[in-house]
Simulated assay, not measured.
Amino acid sequence: MSKSNKIIDAARAIRSELETILGDRDTAQKIDRELNDLLNVPDPTLNLKQIKQLLNSNQKTKGWVKQKLSSSTKSLGYQGLPGMPSTRLQTQKYHCSEKGCDFVWSRRNLAQAIPKCPHHNVTLIAFEDDSPSSEAEL
């Protein structure tokens, strides 16, 4: 996955976390609307400069994205037990089923209830993200 696509994926992922990260609902909604406008185009990489500027405009979002990009690229060195097939642990991702909606949410643990899309009020559905990881920075 290219560096540009990793940043686009991080921008999509942060949308569901903005209120928690910022601690301010109004600011979170403002940034979410701006990200929505930048991401909901046929080729969001054309808006990459504006997306990076928006994410870098706040220290909390900048830090979250930097951590997200670095955590998805580092291996924890896990190896399965001898004789057992090695499997890589992944966070389950969910997305909105409405056409054109790019809202993505990551389930960090099984205790978390699956939320509804904040834009369409429909329950999110699971999908597999098979993208290979490689080092990237914001």
Rank of each mutant, 00 (worst) to 15 (best):
R33F: 11
R33G: 14
R33M: 05
E34M: 12
E34V: 05
E34S: 09
L35M: 08
L35G: 01
D37Q: 14
D37Y: 04
D37A: 14
L39C: 02
L39E: 12
V41Y: 00
T45R: 11
T45Y: 01
L46K: 15
L46Q: 15
L46Y: 12
N47C: 00
Q50H: 06
K52C: 05
Q53W: 03
Q53N: 06
L54R: 02
L54A: 04
N56G: 03
S57Y: 01
Q59F: 11
Q59V: 12
K60G: 06
T61C: 00
T61R: 01
K62R: 11
G63R: 13
W64A: 02
W64T: 09
W64G: 00
V65I: 08
V65C: 03
K66T: 10
K66E: 08
K68R: 15
K68A: 11
L69F: 02
L69K: 00
L69T: 04
L69H: 06
S70D: 10
S70W: 01
S71C: 00
S71H: 14
T73M: 09
T73L: 10
K74S: 13
K74M: 07
K74H: 07
S75C: 10
S75A: 05
S75M: 10
S75N: 11
L76N: 12
L76G: 11
G77L: 07
Y78T: 14
Y78E: 14
Q79F: 13
G80D: 15
L81Y: 14
L81H: 11
L81W: 11
P82I: 12
G83L: 05
M84S: 10
P85W: 13
S86G: 11
S86E: 09
S86V: 14
S86R: 14
R88N: 15
L89T: 15
Q90A: 13
Q90F: 08
Q90Y: 14
T91E: 15
T91Q: 15
Q92V: 02
K93H: 02
Y94C: 04
Y94P: 04
H95F: 05
S97D: 13
S97K: 05
E98I: 10
E98T: 12
K99T: 06
G100D: 12
D102T: 07
F103C: 03
V104E: 01
V104Y: 05
W105M: 03
R107E: 06
R107N: 12
R107C: 08
R108V: 05
R108N: 13
A111D: 15
Q112A: 13
Q112M: 11
A113R: 09
I114S: 07
I114D: 05
C117K: 05
P118F: 07
P118D: 09
P118A: 02
P118N: 10
H119C: 00
H120G: 01
N121W: 02
T123I: 11
L124N: 04
L124H: 01
